[in-house]
């Protein structure tokens, strides 16, 4: 099996966008270019029902080919990991499903196979998930309401890096915040193999007023580097997988 790189944007926000283009549209653009968009919506402690604005969370992930989850601050660490891993499996499964269709014909997917065969294929998916390289760009909403949640976000990201770095495959992480000072997004932490050194850098996150989620996703897309973008364009039938 070919080794590849999975690319993910992990958007962490607590509300809805209010500036620029529709975030679902930019998410689907990213997905077409081989980058899945996952979204975690943080709920306020006293929120008991799903708030209106966070419907956007689900929509962005749907168009971005990713996974979404609403969560209270306390459970953020586990959620960040579950979402990232689920998205990896989902992308790899999509990839395997495509290959299956080529062998078995259209409309055949993993679910249509009997349990025994499914088990064998799932083993392949697992192997790929363990060994593939992974690039995660974390996009953190730093509008005013997020202020008291940022320390928890930081902890959750360090924890994510501990989990992913236990894999055999290599990882690269970067953190961007939005809105940026003059631009749509701002670099907080440049691409590197672990997130354990972010403690000194995180206070840079400043609280602003507007939430330009759409433009932020568009900008984040370009941070994955020109080379890989071009490649993904060429391999259109392999969303999320890039030849190493």
């Amino acid at each position: 099996m070919r080794k590849g790189t999975l690319k993910q944007i992990l958007l962490i926000t607590d509300g809805c966008s209010n500036k620029g283009e529709d975030p679902s549209a930019t998410a689907s653009l990213a997905y077409q270019q081989g980058i899945t968009v996952n979204v975690i919506g943080i709920l306020e402690d006293e929120q008991s029902e799903q708030p209106e604005g966070l419907k956007e969370v689900e929509d962005i992930a749907l168009s971005g080919g990713g996974v979404s989850q609403l969560v209270y601050k306390q459970a953020l660490s586990q959620t960040v990991q579950t979402v990232t891993k689920q998205a990896m499996t989902q992308t790899l499964q999509g990839f395997v499903n495509k290959e299956l269709q080529q062998i078995l014909g259209q409309d055949q997917s993993l679910e249509d196979l009997e349990p025994e065969k499914r088990g064998e294929i799932m083993e392949v998916v697992e192997d790929m998930g363990e060994t593939c390289d992974l690039e995660v760009l974390v996009l953190v909403d730093t509008s005013a309401s997020m202020h008291d949640k940022l320390p928890t976000v930081k902890e959750a990201l360090i924890d994510l890096s501990i989990s992913l770095n236990a894999r055999i495959g290599r990882n690269r992480f970067a953190i961007f915040s939005f809105p940026g000072k003059r631009k749509d997004i701002q670099k907080v932490f440049d691409w590197s193999p672990a997130l354990d050194s972010i403690s000194t850098i995180f206070p840079k996150l400043t609280s602003g007023g507007i939430t330009p989620t759409g433009p932020a996703i568009r900008e984040a897309m370009y941070q994955f580097g020109k080379k890989s973008l071009l490649r993904s364009f060429r391999d259109e039938d392999e969303p999320g997988m890039e030849e190493a």
Binding site: E130, D159, I168
Partner: peptide, 24 residues
């Protein structure tokens, strides 16, 4: 053995206690 632990619970996880990796 040698892979990343698939599922864990915080209280029992040495990564959470900062006492080791999550490698199996």
């Amino acid at each position: 053995t040698g892979r990343a632990i698939k599922e864990y619970t915080e209280f029992y996880d040495r990564g959470y206690w900062e006492m080791g990796s999550r490698r199996a």
